Amino acid sequence: MKRDRRERVEDLTDPWSGVDADRLARAAKEQAERVVPGIRNMGSYLASQVSDVSHREVVGPLLDGEGASGVVVRRDVVLASWGDPGRTEMAFSATKSVLRERLMEPLGASTGWSWHGYADSAVECDGRHLPVVSGGAHWGGGLWISALDLALIGQLCLRGGEWGGRRLVSVRWIEELWRPCPVKPNYGLSWWLNDHRTVWPGAPSTGRCARGNGGGHLLWVDPARDLVVSSRWGAEVESLLAEVSAAIEPAPAA
């Protein structure tokens, strides 16, 4: 039977429309048990990540990991969570540029996130001593942020850079994030694109992600499902994405 227009509009606003709640809950429970090993001692964990000891010295602050955590967000509602999604964690390369006044405050982020540079890496700019952006936290430092706050960035991208009636990021910038690179079609501007399922074969081709530490930190955005998944210190994230995506139907084609 054909549904009327009002029903279709309600489906597009109801975050639970087309969601298998039981399957989603199972996916969250299973991910809580898949923890990246060794993270409770960040110094030894980082040492194990780089084999070349000639540049292994830690030059930024460290934050020990607590365990797997994350959230599944759809249409501004947290549908599932695991671990402590409000706990601040090192983000590695999951997201590489965040601005407090321009982005995080308008998004309503917590005050728990922070950014840390390297002790030996700074430049002089107009008389100011500015730390240089650190690379992925492999030598310490970087962005420290919770799964909940990281999910806000994903929601902003999903909305094309608008939030609460304000434009925080240009449409062109979002387009560039997700534009395939000519020399590596599954990579955009610091985002991985799953269009051909070469990044995560078990996840939908409609998704794209910012990931760090081999996926141990993940921000996944799927416009077809109006979906954001933020995962911290979780192993086997492809299984998480496959299960969550299977539990949430994509929106019908326009």
Rank of each mutant, 00 (worst) to 15 (best):
K2D: 00
D4L: 03
R5D: 04
R5Y: 05
E7T: 11
E7S: 06
V9K: 11
E10F: 07
L12F: 05
L12H: 03
D14Y: 10
D14T: 11
W16C: 10
D22W: 04
D22F: 07
A27D: 05
A32L: 08
E33F: 03
E33M: 08
V36S: 09
V36A: 00
P37C: 09
G38Q: 13
I39G: 13
R40W: 00
G43Y: 07
L46G: 08
L46W: 08
Q49A: 08
D52P: 08
D52I: 06
S54L: 06
S54A: 05
P61H: 02
P61M: 03
G65T: 05
G65F: 07
G65N: 08
S69E: 09
R74D: 10
V78N: 02
L79R: 02
S81Y: 04
P85E: 00
P85H: 00
G86V: 01
R87W: 01
M90G: 11
F92Y: 14
V98F: 13
L99S: 10
R100D: 07
E101R: 06
L103S: 03
E105K: 04
E105D: 04
L107D: 05
L107I: 02
L107C: 03
G108A: 06
W115L: 09
A119G: 09
A122I: 00
A122Y: 04
R128S: 06
L130C: 14
S134H: 12
A137K: 04
W139L: 09
G142F: 02
G142V: 08
L143M: 04
W144K: 14
D149N: 14
D149E: 09
L150N: 14
I153W: 06
Q155F: 01
G160C: 15
W163E: 12
V169I: 13
S170D: 08
V171Q: 15
E175P: 00
E176Q: 15
W178T: 15
R179I: 03
P180A: 10
P180V: 14
V183Q: 05
P185S: 15
N186W: 13
G188H: 10
L189K: 09
L193C: 08
D195F: 12
H196L: 11
H196Y: 13
V199G: 03
V199M: 00
S205E: 15
G207V: 13
R208M: 09
A210H: 02
G214H: 14
H217C: 07
L218Y: 02
L219C: 13
V221T: 14
P223D: 05
V229H: 08
S231N: 12
R232T: 03
W233P: 00
E236S: 07
L240P: 03
L241T: 07
S245A: 15
A247C: 11
E249T: 14
P250C: 12
